[in-house]
Amino acid sequence: MNPKPSSIEEYFSWFSSDIQAKLKQIRQTLMEALPDAKEVISYHMPAFKTSEVLVYYAAAKNHLGYYPTNTGVEEFKKELAPYVTSKGAIQFPYDRELPLELISQIAQFRAEEAKFRAENKKKR
């Protein structure tokens, strides 16, 4: 298993400058989309969390992985058609521009979903 980074900055430092630029783009997009979320390292990846982890992202060999859970992928299935997806993951190739608006929309969807789930849990 890969080593666990102690910070987002340490995680970024493991990659080349061109990959770091993509990681910084997605990080900035998520910071703006999720102002109430906290940055954490979870499963050895950078992530944003409120009452639960909303999204993860990570650098892979040929793509940037974005992990908004299965509901985040399912909700935006049509918009994600140009990308390789699986149950809870999206692959953004390094040789293409990141779809920052779509990344933001998915993150905001996940934030609303987590808020709804947390409110329902309180009512029980």
Rank of each mutant, 00 (worst) to 15 (best):
E39M: 12
Y43G: 11
Q108T: 05
A33D: 03
I26G: 10
V53E: 07
I8K: 11
K123Q: 12
G65T: 04
Y66L: 06
S6K: 14
Y67I: 05
F92D: 00
Y66K: 01
Q28E: 15
I103S: 04
L80V: 07
A59R: 09
E113N: 04
F76G: 03
E9C: 06
S104Y: 06
A89F: 02
H63R: 06
T29N: 11
E119M: 08
Q105W: 00
H63D: 07
R27S: 13
Y43F: 15
Y66S: 00
L54K: 02
P3M: 15
F12H: 14
F15D: 12
Q28A: 14
S51R: 04
S16Q: 13
N120S: 07
T29Y: 10
E79A: 15
A89G: 10
T85N: 04
L30H: 11
P5H: 09
I90K: 01
A107R: 06
A107F: 04
A37V: 08
A107V: 05
L54H: 03
F109W: 02
S51G: 06
K115Q: 09
E9K: 14
T85H: 03
K122T: 02
E10M: 11
K78T: 14
A81V: 00
E10T: 13
S16C: 01
Y94A: 10
W14A: 14
A60D: 10
L80R: 05
Y11K: 12
I103W: 06
T69W: 00
L30G: 09
D18R: 12
E74C: 01
L54G: 01
E101V: 12
E39Y: 13
E101C: 01
S6M: 06
E32I: 11
L102N: 03
I26L: 12
V53N: 11
K22Q: 12
K22E: 12
S13L: 14
E75R: 09
L34Q: 09
A59I: 09
G72D: 00
T69C: 02
T29L: 06
M45I: 13
S7N: 13
V84I: 11
Q108W: 01
K115Y: 03
I8P: 08
I26F: 10
E119D: 14
L54T: 02
T50L: 08
A21S: 15
V73T: 03
E75S: 03
P99Q: 10
I19R: 15
S6D: 13
G88C: 02
M45Q: 14
I103R: 05
G65N: 03
P46C: 08
S7A: 10
E75M: 07
L80G: 06
S86M: 00
F48H: 06
R117Y: 02
L80Q: 04
S7G: 11
K61A: 10
N70Y: 10
S51P: 01
D18Q: 14
K49P: 05
E97A: 15
D36G: 13
N120Y: 04
D95L: 15
I90T: 02
K4D: 14
L30V: 05
T50P: 07
I103Y: 07
T71E: 09
I106T: 03
P68A: 03
R110Y: 02
L98I: 00
K115P: 02
N62E: 15
Y11C: 13
E74L: 07
K38F: 05
D36Y: 03
V40C: 08
R124L: 04
R96T: 12
Y94G: 12
